[in-house]
Design a protein around this nucleic acid. Structure first.
Lengths: 745, 745
DNA sequence: ATGTAGGCTCACTGCCGACAA
DNA sequence: TTGTCGGCAGTGAGCCTACAT
């Protein structure tokens, strides 16, 4: 017998009680218990102790995330997957005592004060509202010597309080609409148990018992339906009024409706739209923008004012993970992720409980180091082994990863394996072994493979600018403290690396060998103050040169890397030292922690010896190095953070923070959201053009210059219809023809 | 017999030929002629010389602005009213030789290169596209001595070129839809002449002749209609396909459709929606914001790059005047406008040819002096004599005004006439008499009245900070050159003044007498370099003190102004001296030109003698003065502290000191208190939206940018109902409850 | 000449049980 | 138990003329 999982979930929800409490001090706590609800008689008398507002809140809490509720018997706390609501039914982790942390601001820890669901009345979607109390936490701090200390025991016993008021789960059901349900032909077929559970009883003695149901939606709008019990075999149907509801709500097959009966017998109903794929773009992209822009901005304010903030979050519409459990976070950051790493991920899909997916990290994107200088979060692009995953989860948060192993892909595909054998032996240092409970890295067995990854790489020839005999010598004399074992690699600034051309980043520079050998004078530069011994050398493929191996890159400049691998780089976790005076010192020390205690092979081409000179003036393949160099804190005389956006014909302008965005695509998504033009901007055929006025007051087309450059020169963004470009080319008229008259007299 | 004016207009358009030409050099010119079109036989053979593209362009030109086309026989060039298209049929002023000038950038003159209509495919509206060639003109320049020279003769013979290709106007008609036309019950009743003119002929021998019409809209979409000639009496009807068209275009009664038959017999059709009143918001707001932000920004670019730019302009949707004929402009700026001035305005409404409206200027708003430091444009708020005008034309551009007289309103309403008699005699200087052809000011007869206006004022006690014996003495010795007679008053920076609290502006400071007398030490300050003799004294009510009357404000501090008159101030036209080194000098000289040659009575309280010191540190009623002082270019680092707040529907504005506030939340609370809207603003669901105008004069949503940034750029805050956002997003589904179940079994 | 209303037809909405999965 | 289909009826869109202005 097949079981509709959606329905099963609903039943679980009904069987599991969720308790809400709000104490007078505003210190909300919600705890969960697996106590079964009151006896499931058909029509329990309304609980006199329950106030309508509590019912309403509970209704809101239940209305949205049903599909995200745990499977029967499951009690796993799995915040990172975004199914925050699981905490509601997790007896092991009451929300109020869970450590929550913003993924993009490691200094700030938050305490969940309240979780409830709210409705976006615009699109009828339900969002989870997480009220967080930001707590600049002592859990993670830098000691004076720059060493990172994880003080796990601190701040543990603070929350709590408030006696939870027990509330029995009201009777409800959720049904995914069938084609018949949404067609104009008929009504809505009510599942038998759902009707008996939620709707007032009918007089079954009648031939065709029927009644009028009145249900309020999230807006408070009443919807009336004729509920009839008829047919052979008998079944419950909603007829009159149903199609109007479907039409006005714009429901289609695959969407879901939800009915909930309150204590007084009053009905509520909500819709839960299916996650419709946004054309052309993976949903994960939308997720990221959605979350970052709309949700995180008030958080900054709250943090500075030490007040609470709310996070709105729709588990159906967005995959973004705003909060992660502390343990998960710690586990994640102690497991470096490299491009090429094979990761395992647990997926909570509606149709399969706990499916685990595996894939290979193909790209590591960073947050904007200007805006989130200390963020440890990275955006991973994953090529999944299973093709089914391709469309749904292209981008992954490192917090989500369950285990990591080094991938061995690319070995067989490289015909030049032997030739590369003479390359450096990349060995993962032992202290990068996972210490977290969830992370799993077996570098021992993977060390060889990762070296093969390096050896297999073609065409891209990289060398670190840190290379240089002097630096190497210094480095070899450096002793690595023992107490930093197991700590993550520390690195200020990070960037994605899917570009064909190498990027030079703060603390991580990548050069083609060719440029080194051919024109080392202008291609080499050093970062960091040599007097402080910036010693870590990260090869582009993620290995760390160790030992006393001579520099093969210099001697054999024709290293070939397979093209399918752009570069394999470690997921370094930067920690920002806010004490500006000792920046270099601490960076140097932090950097050391990432270095294997073994001998590291390095050469730092150090032509430009000065620390402050950076890479100004150097170019690589026409790309100015300096512009890519992320200067240290504070952010340079920064260009404006927010850029105004005007849409043609729109009265009101908006503003976007470009530093938050990663690329043009992000921008388009952001703009679409700001102006409610979902899907209209990314598709040029929709007729919109994005223009901008730059610092030279020139009116330009967005997208022509590199994103970073764009961010710095843009002054104002304009959204115009495509007519704007026709002004020079004359009118174009598209000739899609429609016939609305079939017969001619 | 009643005549549908819309139809008349259409016929005029058909009778008047409009000629377009585009020469190969890209130098487009369009000229007009009143030559009647070819004999109006029913089906003229397609002109072989006309290319389809020209037809298309012409079609676009005709499709939109029909209501703006001149009445029969009219040849008046009347750009300022926004009916740019009138030039198309004006034989006296071919477009190509007309001087066009941006109202907000007096240095830049533009030459019209092309005019055509484009479609906003979103709302199906038609826009006028004006391709302009900016010409940094010599017409208006400042001599080295700072005197303004109007070199009318220059630059006159430059344009032209290109032999216009004659094109006969295609056959077209425009009909405003009736209730029957738009009802679901029937089809579209085609006016007889229109059908015979535009549609292919039917075989009238048949019983019910019919045919299928295929017409393309602006998007190129083909619409098919059954065209039938039937009924008793016989008439032309569009049946099948029509209701689909109406529905999909969202047409309602009052909208108009337009059919146009090309040379090849192909049909085009367009819609022209009726100007639906935007609920709650005066259309002028839309206009201003829309135009300034979306339309003018590319112009800056074009000006700097000396390239062309386009202006998109919808005569139906916006009232903004982007271009004004040069003569009109000159006439306007030579006629100072005061609050209280009675103005006459010509209105081109659809239903009445050349209706003239009169009203009294109640408010003079300025452009942002930061962004448009030299703009002469002012936004006038006019209280119209005719109540009908109240909703349509609240705000007026000075370019539109036909004639100006001083108003005498307020005389009778003042019970304290006698008491105020001892006040200063405000006399308009003779050199402010109008010299332009259109302006009309009779200051001689109004001088007394304006003084009465002053005398009648209560409760608001103002005095200029310029008052001071030293300055007065200097001023009295100043000789006014004769050759500046008739030139407008020159003043850097200007601001509206409808507020209860005084504002301190550049060159125009207004203080309550009370503060002067009580704490003159901190309330007085001087602007301008005394060595250059800033001599003009503008009283807040717009008068210029002259003669040797002693300062009555100092001796009788209890001046009372009627509340209904905020202040009567002259519309000073600032001219920006771009030579930065001599700024003060030229300003001082320019200022002198506005002063009556007669003896002027002034006192400048000049405690703070330094020019650069401004008003920093002084506060008045808690309002820092310095923040309100508009410094000379470049804009000062200190943004304004107090920001004006306007609530939709409220006549009176308030002001908030943003520096006192911590964040957006504080702001909302403050605003709620100011407007007694407790709880209404912080909850978005209450339906209020907080917007603001920033330093770029853009209309933005509050909350998008960080608070600190916001504080620095905000210029004015607007509280609107949420309707304001619907203007950009289109209709929202209203949630009126509907019962869809009438009978219960 | 043309706006509006009544009559008429037809297509579609929407309620019903049959039937099958 | 419930998704889908054929049957069927009521409503209304839409074509027609009549009538009024």
């Amino acid at each position: 017998m097949e079981i509709d999982l959606n329905h099963s979930i609903c039943e679980v929800a009904a069987e599991k009680s969720t308790f809400y409490s709000v104490n007078s001090a505003g210190n909300c706590s919600s705890s969960c218990s697996s106590t079964p609800p009151a006896s499931p008689h058909h029509h329990p008398p309304p609980a006199s102790s329950s106030s309508p507002s509590v019912f309403s809140e509970l209704w809101h809490a239940c209305a949205g995330p049903l599909a995200s509720l745990p499977k029967k018997g499951s009690a796993v706390v799995y915040f990172p997957q975004g199914h925050l609501e699981q905490c509601l039914s997790s007896s092991s982790s009451p929300i109020s005592s869970l450590e929550i942390q913003r993924f993009d601001h490691p200094q700030i820890f938050c305490r969940v004060m309240n979780i409830q669901l709210l409705a976006n009345k615009e699109n009828d979607e339900v969002y989870t509202r997480v009220t967080l109390l930001p707590q600049p936490s002592e859990l993670l701090r830098l000691n004076s010597d720059g060493r990172e200390t994880l003080d796990l025991g601190a701040d543990e016993k603070e929350g709590g309080g408030g006696s939870p008021v027990l509330k029995s789960t009201p009777h409800m059901f959720c049904k995914t609409l069938t084609a018949s349900d949404t067609s104009t032909h008929g009504g809505f077929s009510v599942p038998r148990r759902a009707a008996e559970d939620c709707f007032p009883p009918l007089d079954y003695k009648q031939q065709r018992p029927s009644q009028e149901l009145i249900a309020k939606d999230l807006h408070g709008v009443e919807w009336r339906f004729r509920h009839i019990y008829r047919g052979q075999p008998r079944r419950h149907l909603l007829t009159t009024g149903w199609s109007s509801f479907v039409n006005q709500k714009g429901l289609v097959s695959g969407d879901a409706v939800l009915f909930l009966r309150g204590e007084g017998g009053e009905l509520r109903l909500g819709v839960r739209r299916a996650l419709r794929p946004v054309n052309g773009l993976p949903s994960s992209v939308i997720e990221n923008q959605n979350s970052c822009s709309a949700i995180l901005s008030p958080i900054d304010n709250a943090i500075s004012s030490k007040s609470t903030f709310d996070v709105f979050y729709s588990p159906r519409a967005t995959h973004a993970e705003f909060v992660v459990p502390y343990k998960k976070y710690i586990a994640s950051i102690t497991s470096p992720i490299y491009i090429g790493s094979r990761i395992k991920l647990r997926i909570d899909a509606d149709d399969s409980p706990e499916r685990r997916c595996t894939g290979v990290v193909t790209r590591i994107g960073g947050l904007d180091p200007y805006r989130w200088p200390g963020s440890r979060w990275r955006c991973l692009t994953v090529k999944w082994d299973d093709d089914i995953m391709n469309n749904t989860e292209e981008r992954v948060s490192p917090w989500e990863i369950e285990s990591i192993t080094m991938s061995s892909f690319g070995i067989q595909s490289s015909p030049r394996l032997k030739k590369a054998r003479s390359g450096p032996q990349i060995t993962q240092p032992e202290d990068l072994l996972p210490t977290g409970s969830m992370g799993h890295l077996d570098f021992e067995e993977d060390s060889l493979r990762s070296s093969k990854v390096l050896q297999g790489q073609e065409n891209l020839r990289f060398v670190s600018p840190f290379f240089g005999n002097g630096a190497m010598n210094r480095l070899e004399n450096t002793s690595i403290p023992d107490n930093v074992m197991g700590k993550p690699a520390i690195y200020p600034g990070f960037e994605e690396s899917t570009y064909r051309f190498p990027k030079v980043l703060q603390g991580q520079e990548i050069y083609p060998i060719k440029s080194l050998t051919q024109n080392s004078k202008h291609s080499f530069a050093s970062w960091g103050n040599p007097s402080h011994g910036i010693q870590n050398v990260y090869l582009p493929w993620g290995g760390i040169l160790k030992g006393s191996v001579s520099n093969p890159l210099m001697s054999s400049p024709s290293y070939d890397f397979p093209m399918e691998i752009t570069s394999a780089r470690p997921l370094h976790i930067p920690i920002r030292d806010e004490i500006g005076s000792d920046k270099v010192e601490s960076e140097a020390k932090q950097a050391r922690y990432a270095i294997s205690p073994g001998s590291v092979e390095k050469e730092i081409a150090q032509e430009n010896g000065g620390f402050g000179s950076g890479f100004s003036g150097y170019k690589l393949f026409g790309f100015p190095l300096a512009s890519e160099v992320q200067s240290r804190s504070p952010p340079p005389p920064t260009p404006q953070a927010s850029v105004k956006v005007h849409k043609q014909g729109s009265l009101v302008g908006r503003a976007v923070d470009l530093w938050r965005l990663k690329d043009y695509e992000d921008l388009l998504i952001e703009l679409e959201q700001l102006f409610s033009m979902e899907g209209l901007l990314r598709d040029a055929e929709k007729g919109w053009r994005i223009l901008y006025t730059d610092s030279g007051n020139d009116f330009m087309v967005v997208g022509d210059i590199p994103w970073r450059e764009f961010v710095e020169v843009v002054r104002k963004i304009h959204i115009h219809t495509q007519e704007v470009e026709k002004m020079t080319r004359g009118m174009l008229i598209n000739d899609d023809t429609q016939s609305c008259l079939d017969q001619s007299p």
